[in-house]
Nucleic acid binder design. Structure first.
Length: 336
DNA sequence: AAGCAATTCAACCGCGGTCCG
DNA sequence: TCGGACCGCGGTTGAATTGCT
């Protein structure tokens, strides 16, 4: 029957987003919330298709996103979750709430896959190939598949155990409050905090961009790369910005975008990057991520608490197979 | 310093699933 | 039940950047 294109090919802008567009999008979402993406370009005047807006939000502007290098623990998690779930990046990302599926996918494709291939080559001769861990083996009998899945689960538990237990105060726990805290805060999800934090996210990057406007520094968050380049455009196109307040306040030199942002959305503390995660835990901008068991709300931090429960309940459930998805389903049942 | 190759990652594309009239 | 509209996901692309010669 032929699906019509998601957006008009004509008049739709493609390519990197400019700070102006980011601001427009964020301010719109702050006001209306994420969702109904179809309406976003129409209502904001952005010359972008709805998909592009959604992608920009979920992969870049959404609050609580951590960028930069992956930690060892994150790497382990990804490797084991990939073994368990296959290339279901969104599902994997739900266990790494600070990372987007796109990030994880990129990391896997550009780094981890190669790394594992090398390791595998080093272990050449040992029977199990990397792909052998995938649960999506088509020619596997159900019994085999289940046994393998259980092995995978055990491996993942082990990895998670390593990741979570040794110094619970390191990366993973410093990123999250206690699971009970998580659960209680998740239920509240104050809207205002959600969108204030989203503006914090973008303002932080804008501020960072203001610090290094002309050239892209490798040490800067990689996500700022395009801002570094488009940033020059922005300065040159000042006055064309739809947010006239920003240019109105400047005296002809640099526009203090972050300041403008502060005044626009009424928040502060750009420097509180350490608190990002805890703040982001309170956010659930998408709000619809519990649609199935494989998609626990990444922002709600539930997955980690589940995994912890899953891991630490192990001792109490010895001899009984604990299935993660069951746990998640149970938790969801309690959750709603 | 210049040219080329390799790498990274933001963004796009197209498909499948779900919702709704 | 059907079909259109929308959303989300995974695969892929290509511009920007980095590293090497």
């Amino acid at each position: 029957m032929g699906r019509p294109p998601c957006c008009d090919k004509e008049g739709v802008k493609k390519g990197p987003w400019t700070p102006e567009e980011d601001i427009i999008l964020v301010s719109y979402i702050q006001e209306h919330g994420p969702g109904n993406w179809r309406a976003v370009p129409t209502n904001t005047g952005l010359l972008r298709c709805s998909k592009s807006c959604r992608l920009r939000w979920t992969n870049y502007l959404r609050p609580g996103i951590k960028r930069g290098n992956f930690t060892d623990n994150e790497e382990k998690m990804i490797i084991h979750l990939q073994a368990l779930l296959g290339n279901r990046w969104a599902a994997i990302a739900s266990y790494l709430p600070q990372r987007t599926d796109n990030d994880i996918k990129n990391y896997w494709n550009t780094y981890l896959k190669k790394k594992l291939t090398k390791i595998q080559a080093g272990l050449e001769g040992s029977s199990q190939s990397r792909e052998g861990f995938s649960s999506s083996q088509p020619s596997m009998s159900r019994g085999q598949w289940e046994r393998r899945l259980q092995t995978d689960i055990r491996m993942a538990k082990q990895a998670l155990s390593e990741a979570l237990s040794p110094e619970k105060s390191t990366s993973l726990t410093e990123q999250k409050p206690s699971s009970s805290e998580t659960l209680s805060t998740t239920k509240q999800v104050p809207q205002s905090s959600t969108y204030a934090s989203s503006t914090e996210n973008i303002s932080r990057l804008l501020k960072s961009w203001m610090r290094n406007p002309p050239k892209r520094a490798k040490t800067a968050p990689s996500s700022l790369s395009h801002l570094g380049t488009t940033g020059a455009d922005y300065t040159s196109s000042e006055g064309t910005t739809p947010l006239s307040t920003t240019s109105a306040n400047n005296n002809g030199n640099n526009i203090d975008l972050s300041e403008a942002f502060e005044s626009l959305f009424g928040f502060e503390s750009f420097e509180s990057s350490n608190s990002d995660f805890s703040q982001s835990n309170n956010m659930s901008p998408e709000g619809s991520l519990f649609q199935d068991e494989s998609k626990p709300d990444p922002n709600a931090q539930l997955p980690f608490s589940l995994l912890e429960k899953w891991l630490f309940d192990e001792s109490g459930t010895q001899g009984k197979e604990v299935v993660l998805s069951d746990l998640i389903l149970d938790e969801n049942a309690n959750f709603f």
